[in-house]
Nucleic acid binder design. Structure first.
Length: 121
RNA sequence: AGACAAGGCCGGAUAGCUGCUGCAUCCUUAUAAAGGAUGGAGAGGAAAGUCCGGGCUUUACGGGAACACGGCGCCGGAUAACGUCCGGACAGGCUUAAACCUGAUGGAAAGUGCCACAGAAAACAGACUACCUCUAUUGAGGAAAAGGUGAAAAGGUGCGGUAAGAGCGCACCGCAUCGAUGGUAACAUUGAUGGCAUGGCAAACCCCGCCGGAAGCAAGACCAAAUAGGGGCUGCGUGCUGUAUAGCAGGAGCGUUCCCGCUCUGAGCAGUCCGGGUAGGUUGCUCGAGCCGUUUGGUAACAGACGGCCUAGAUGAAUAGCUAUCCCUCUCUUAUGAGGGGACAGAACCCGGCUUACAGGCUUUGUUUCGGA
RNA sequence: GCGGGUGUAGUUCAAUGGUAGAACGUCAGCCUUCCAAGCUGAAUAUGCCGGUUCGAUCCCGGUCACCCGCU
């Protein structure tokens, strides 16, 4: 399955540090093997997401970039159809994110959504 | 053909579906803004480390110089500049040998300082053992060759010479001074003279010569909400009198204090304007010491001429996800084939270098060995 | 991205270019019926690679790791 471009436009991006801090402080969290998902409600009626990959994961910029791209690709594919609107989502990369199969990555993301009871389908 | 050495270049390829970030053109509603369509572009040789040098920007000073501080240091050239590059000199090193490699390589005869331990002595000299002469216990004188210490011991080897010895004399080598020849120069070769003076360390202080003001795009410039605060104007208003100007009362300051005089203030509210400026946004931001090709000059670094080209510009930060075929490589298998892997590494204002990391491949040059004609 | 700093025993710190020390900690022994305290002794280090020097913790390059500041 491929996500339509119009669906992707429906979800926004988190870009400012205060938003990330708010999600980390107020939101719920679920950890899977390949990623950590944080979620907190916003009052916009729209889903937004952001990515966090720190230098702690890997010192190599190449590795960090690959993790970030894989997470973004998975988010664009899964979130528009599956995530509940009105929430901010933050995906945090882990060591496993680089090596794991892409299909497992999407499964993990769905699993995290389900455990946080934010899956809509 | 082999061995060795030194450079230069490349840094997986193609296609499909779905996406991301700028740019150009067009369309839609209503200029803004948003959305859509089409086209074309989208990481490196080191983008890295931030070790040097510049451009650019702000800042300091009226302008300049010097001191201090920091850096560099054989000679000649290249360059916008450099601690970089090219060519040469000298010293050291690898190799049987050669090609070749490495070098922060000015001055110790301007001055100061240091040279542990050992050793007689570590730098104005001088003498422990030992040597020679006289005296003959001892002491006085001569002399510095031999022993031993040390990283380093006041020229080295040989012959003559002598009581023993010594540059005391001679030859060669080294060193110093003055020349000659070659070279732009560093320097090399060589002649004469001197007769040993000048131990090492300047990546110790320092002297000499040259260079440098400082900070850095988070520099800097522009636009500019909300809130708080500053200033101007207008209106209403003031403890008392007055319609109002104003006067009196009050407060503050000055005249040394009181009296008295002068100046300022007087209570705020509303409206409006101005300036600074935070969040945020725009810009700086990619046409430049630019790249490619041909050609001329030069041993070369490089420079000139002609022709062609436009080649990332993000900002919680794009350049991707998945699949297939080919290429390289590893493992298993008799083979067909199956499976795994793809070096180092990600632009952030831009250039010139240096250093460090790097799977594999292509290619050029030099030296030398072997074979054939 | 830019600017600055630091690396020495297990820890906190010393050390004019000349045998790397101190305190606490660890281990062993003595003392004690046993433990603690005390006494005696031992082990344990200059981040790494080069250069200058007769000789580097120290001086000079490179490299690695860590820390701090600037929105």
């Amino acid at each position: 399955m491929h996500t339509l471009k119009s669906d992707i436009k429906k979800i926004g991006r988190l870009q400012k540090r205060p938003n990330f801090l708010r999600v980390a402080k107020e939101g719920k969290k679920w950890t899977s093997k390949s990623l950590i998902l944080q979620a907190a409600p916003n009052n916009l009626g729209q889903a937004r997401f952001g990515l966090t990959v720190t230098k702690k994961i890997s010192k190599s910029a190449v590795v960090r970039n690959r993790i970030r791209r894989r997470l973004r690709a998975a988010a664009f594919e899964i979130l528009p159809g599956a995530a509940k609107p009105g929430y901010d989502y933050v995906l945090i990369g882990r060591h496993e994110t680089e090596k794991k199969d892409y299909t497992d990555l999407t499964k993990d993301l769905r699993w995290c959504l389900k455990r946080l009871e934010l899956l809509t389908e």
